[in-house]
């Protein structure tokens, strides 16, 4: 479980990005974090991972996110970055997936076995020896997910997992997310994707949680979405949104 209580974060003094955010994320949930640009979605994720300083309390499985607990917290929370190029920093997919495993003390043999298993589970075994800089956008994203999954985190945080992907690769990522049996926290502007993958949605606006509830309810509420800089998911523009 992840608990956030009255979390404040600021990059510049006197200009907080998160302004007293409180949220509980229960095990096994899939949560969509939505909000306009600058609402604080990515900042919230970074604070949960201990990548930026914050005030308030963030607890991951009962452990406070602070320097002494970073290793344990980061083992529990896997983070898939928006830009896979920044995540896949080793020359090959195999090296990259093994990177975290070796850092957490696994032997080379065990790490390679685990890598094979994760790549096979995601159906991308053929990418194992490929160079990262020669993968397509979709392949990079899948490899980045594999690198995170290999570490067996109990929670997976994804920042815009479908950005810059073509429809087919977007669908592959959505199906992959649906097949993951973990707590998922997905920040995205792709509200259709959130509807497909998350039962619960949290709307952030100017660093605060302004709505928290079932995706099927919040993401069909045109007034709520528009007042927070969002729009109805595209599918409702084609068939007509409920209650519009």
């Amino acid at each position: 479980m992840v608990e956030l209580r009255d979390v404040y974060c600021e990059y510049e003094k006197g200009n907080p990005v998160l302004k007293g955010t409180s949220l509980n994320i229960y095990d096994g949930e899939s949560i969509g974090l939505v909000g306009a640009n600058g609402a604080g979605k990515s900042t919230l994720m970074k604070a949960m991972l201990g990548l930026i300083p914050y005030t308030g309390d963030i607890l991951v499985d009962g452990l406070r996110v602070e320097k002494s607990n970073y290793q344990a917290v980061r083992k529990s929370l896997g983070f898939v970055l928006q830009n896979s190029d920044n995540q896949m920093f080793m020359p090959t997919v195999k090296e990259d997936v093994m990177f975290g495993l070796l850092n957490y003390g696994m032997s080379s043999e065990e790490a390679e076995k685990k890598t094979d298993q994760v790549l096979s589970d995601l159906g991308i075994s053929h990418l194992k020896e490929r160079h990262n800089h020669r993968l397509s956008g979709g392949e990079k994203r899948m490899s980045a997910i594999a690198a995170v999954l290999a570490m067996d985190p109990s929670h997976i945080l994804m920042d815009e997992p479908c950005s810059a992907l073509d429809p087919r690769n977007r669908r592959v990522i959505i199906n992959t997310v649906l097949g993951l049996d973990r707590t998922m926290i997905i920040a995205s502007h792709d509200l259709d994707m959130i509807l497909d993958t998350c039962k619960r949605t949290v709307i952030l606006s100017e660093g605060k949680v302004v709505a928290d509830g079932p995706s099927s309810v919040l993401l069909t509420d045109r007034d709520l979405l528009e007042s927070n800089g969002l729009e109805l998911p595209l599918r409702y523009y084609q068939s007509g949104p409920a209650g519009s």
Binding site: Q71, R74, F99
Partner: peptide, 13 residues
């Protein structure tokens, strides 16, 4: 850092 990097790169293969 999120994947346990402590300043020493460990190489596989």
């Amino acid at each position: 850092q999120l994947r346990g990097f402590d300043g020493d790169m460990r190489y596989a293969g």
